[in-house]
């Protein structure tokens, strides 16, 4: 998990500020990207590039830690040793991804403390799907399989982007996500082919999550602005619509194959190979992403409590008189 394209588009009113950049440096920068070179932290970059990447990596990091919460609540309730241990390891990976991503974002000049503070103060966003609840074990399985699957589509594309530290983090993250996908698929298959109680739970969870999954890649490209410059700079590597189509093409047949149905009567692949579907409710999406979803307040409250309760530990770590202890690694 859990990065998605849904939150990092530039607001429509933002100015690019490109007229203030040195035209020669800008031309060299664009030429390097066109040649497929990676931009590294000490290299020159336009302000808009720095700002946009910081925002994107930061939001991806936030999505990892906030995203660990809905599945994390099922660690203590996972049925049986095998699932319990796997669920722990899976969620732990996501927190590890956050750690990697905050480090990548820090190379652009913003500290982890500042990013976490912006998160709990509502200044920065995270993937909107985590503002929805996971009332059953099956919901957690749907996230493990399909939200992670969506994230892989997105991150495999972004791993070919232009910013070196982010690409390297994404390469490592995608390798772990591939395991999560197998884990989630295995758990869903067990339920979908299990007892009547299990099958019902899984179908209901899928019905609940499908609308959110359809919004995972963000609004249609027709509604996005500035996509062109971000794609030229290889910040954004695939359009929202292209990612959504790829996801549907890869996973809808797999979902149908195990006997589950999807709650969209219009969902089908047309003769040109393009998936048709009922347009998601983007007004609802906007309402939820701006704070009015079923779990926004709860997610942020948990994060804020963790920050506040742990503040004494971080203060102690910064104490210069603290006895130096050899680190573990």
């Amino acid at each position: 998990m859990y990065g998605s394209a849904s939150t990092h588009d530039i607001p429509a009113k933002a100015t690019t500020g490109l007229e203030n950049e040195d035209p020669i440096l800008l031309a060299e920068f664009e030429a390097r990207i066109a040649r497929g070179e990676k931009i590294e932290p000490t290299d020159w970059m336009p302000q808009l590039y720095r700002k946009q990447l910081t925002r994107m990596i930061e939001q991806h990091a936030h999505s990892e830690i906030i995203g660990s919460l809905p599945e994390g609540t099922w660690i203590t309730r996972a049925p049986g040793f095998r699932r319990k241990m796997a669920q722990m390891a899976k969620v732990q990976d996501e927190v590890g991804h956050a750690q990697l991503l905050y480090s990548a974002a820090e190379t652009l000049g913003k500290t982890r403390e500042q990013m976490l503070s912006d998160l709990v103060n509502g200044k920065s966003k995270y993937s909107n799907v985590f503002n929805y609840p996971t009332p059953t074990w099956a919901d957690s399985n749907v996230i493990s399989w399909l939200i992670d699957a969506g994230a892989i589509v997105n991150q495999m594309a972004n791993a070919k982007g232009s910013y070196g530290p982010y690409c390297r983090a994404l390469d490592r993250i995608c390798a772990e996500e591939a395991f999560h996908l197998k884990y989630g698929h295995d758990a869903v298959v067990h339920m979908a082919t299990g007892t009547p109680v299990q099958r019902k739970m899984m179908q209901e969870a899928l019905n609940r999550w499908w609308p959110a999954i359809m919004t995972f890649f963000g609004p249609s490209d027709k509604m996005s602005v500035h996509t062109e410059i971000l794609m030229r700079w290889k910040v954004k590597m695939a359009t929202n619509d292209a990612c959504r189509q790829q996801f549907l093409d890869m996973y809808v047949p797999k979902i149908w194959e195990i006997g589950l149905t999807l709650p969209d009567a219009n969902l089908r692949k047309n003769e040109d190979g393009v998936w048709e579907f009922t347009e998601p409710d983007w007004e609802d999406f906007k309402r939820v992403i701006n704070g009015d979803g079923p779990c926004n307040a709860e997610r942020i409250a948990v994060r804020r409590a963790a920050e506040e309760n742990g503040a004494w530990v971080r203060r102690a770590l910064l104490q210069p008189q603290a006895r130096y202890v050899r680190p573990l690694a």
């Binding site: 830690i65 660990s68 919460l69 994390g72 660690i75 203590t76 722990m88 969620v91 732990q92 927190v95 956050a98 750690q99 905050y102 948990v302 994060r303 409590a305 963790a306 309760n309 742990g310 503040a311 004494w312 530990v313 971080r314 770590l317």
Partner: peptide, 10 residues
């Protein structure tokens, strides 16, 4: 395992 999401540092 209940420390998931609640630790003083990640």
């Amino acid at each position: 395992s209940e420390w998931n999401g609640l630790g003083p540092i990640l």
